[in-house]
């Protein structure tokens, strides 16, 4: 009884971690470059919509994923251009981008299909990857049978770690994060790095959004939406993981664990599922309070 339960908790935890860790890594790059992007929620939402929509038309998963990443990147770059060339406040543009994403996806869904929540029937199933030996070991079984993006997310965190700490690019990026003035005197182009970091953010949030809608073939528009606060959880994860991609992965696993716990409590106890939906947010806040109280670190460098 207890072992299948543990299996399913580990499985849900990994699945819930993927979108959060991808978005958190995306925002990490923009945080380094000094242009903190808060439009994760919106970027994930447009990617979730366009990826499933394109797959529905073409029945090609790769094209859908590219469409999702493209849509998220376009939204991200529009934020970058408005802020860089027209001196808008990044923060307010980010909030606006979140609202635009909700408005645009809901509007398009209603205009094209007549309802804000859509079920796409001819979306091909994503293949689950079973890992040969692990899938037979009782407690580790939950690690096997995920979609390819879930494994990719963990690989991407490791790649980001190497990129940030062991390459010249990462060294430049961290210099900008520490002190823009020093970076300027060293001849590092800040604008170029901000642009690249928005490309990163678009790519990663696009993947994170596609993983929300593609496996189920459903899009939920409207006020709550498909992203359902995951973009904000990603910012909380960045706050916990600070500047290290592996710490970010660990923090995202913690948030994933609370999601899995809330799913588990839904099944095993009579607590209301609605009430349990608040659990990841409350847990994130409490974790940040404990972290801050212990480390005496200052919060994110949101400059506004």
């Amino acid at each position: 009884m207890i072992i299948p339960l543990i299996d399913s908790v580990i499985y849900t935890m990994l699945a819930a971690t993927t979108p959060v860790v991808l978005a958190a890594l995306g925002v990490m790059f923009t945080n380094f470059s000094g242009m903190f992007n808060i439009a994760l929620e919106g970027m994930m939402l447009v990617s979730a919509f366009f990826s499933v929509f394109v797959v529905d038309i073409t029945s090609n998963l790769w094209l859908g994923m590219i469409a999702g990443i493209g849509a998220a990147t376009i939204l991200g770059l529009s934020i970058f251009f408005i802020c860089h060339y027209f001196h808008a406040e990044i923060f307010i543009v980010g909030m606006g981008a979140n609202l635009i994403a909700t408005g645009l996806t809901t509007f398009m869904a209603v205009q094209l299909k007549g309802s804000s929540s859509l079920i796409f029937e001819n979306v091909p199933k994503l293949r689950r990857i079973a890992i040969p030996i692990i899938e037979n070991i009782p407690i580790l079984r939950g690690l096997s049978g995920h979609y390819v993006i879930d494994y990719l997310a963990i690989a991407i965190s490791v790649i980001c770690y190497i990129l940030v700490f062991y390459t010249p690019y990462g060294y430049h990026l961290r210099t900008i994060g520490k002190d823009e003035w020093v970076a300027k005197t060293l001849g590092i182009s800040i604008t170029k790095h901000q642009f690249i970091s928005y490309l990163w953010c678009g790519f990663l949030c696009g993947l994170g959004g596609a993983v929300l809608s593609l496996p189920v073939g459903v899009f939920l528009g409207g006020p709550v939406g498909m992203a359902n606060g995951r973009g904000w959880l990603a910012i909380a994860v960045l706050c916990l993981g600070q500047e290290n991609p592996l710490n970010i992965l660990a923090a995202a696993l913690f948030i994933g664990a609370t999601s899995a716990l809330s799913d588990l409590l839904q099944v095993t106890t009579s607590l209301s599922p609605r009430l349990l939906m608040a659990l990841p947010f409350a847990a994130a806040l409490i974790a940040i309070v404990f972290y801050m109280a212990k480390e005496h670190k200052t919060s994110l460098g949101i400059k506004i």
Binding site: Y85, E89, I92, G96, L99, I100, G103, F107, V110, Q111
Partner: peptide, 25 residues
């Protein structure tokens, strides 16, 4: 008219309102 355009227009106002450089241009 689809009533959802209200949200889209409101969001776009929000998006563009601080871009004073755009209005300068």
């Amino acid at each position: 008219i689809t009533p959802e355009i209200a949200q889209l227009i409101q969001a776009t106002i929000f998006y563009i309102i601080t871009a004073e450089g755009l209005f300068e241009a």
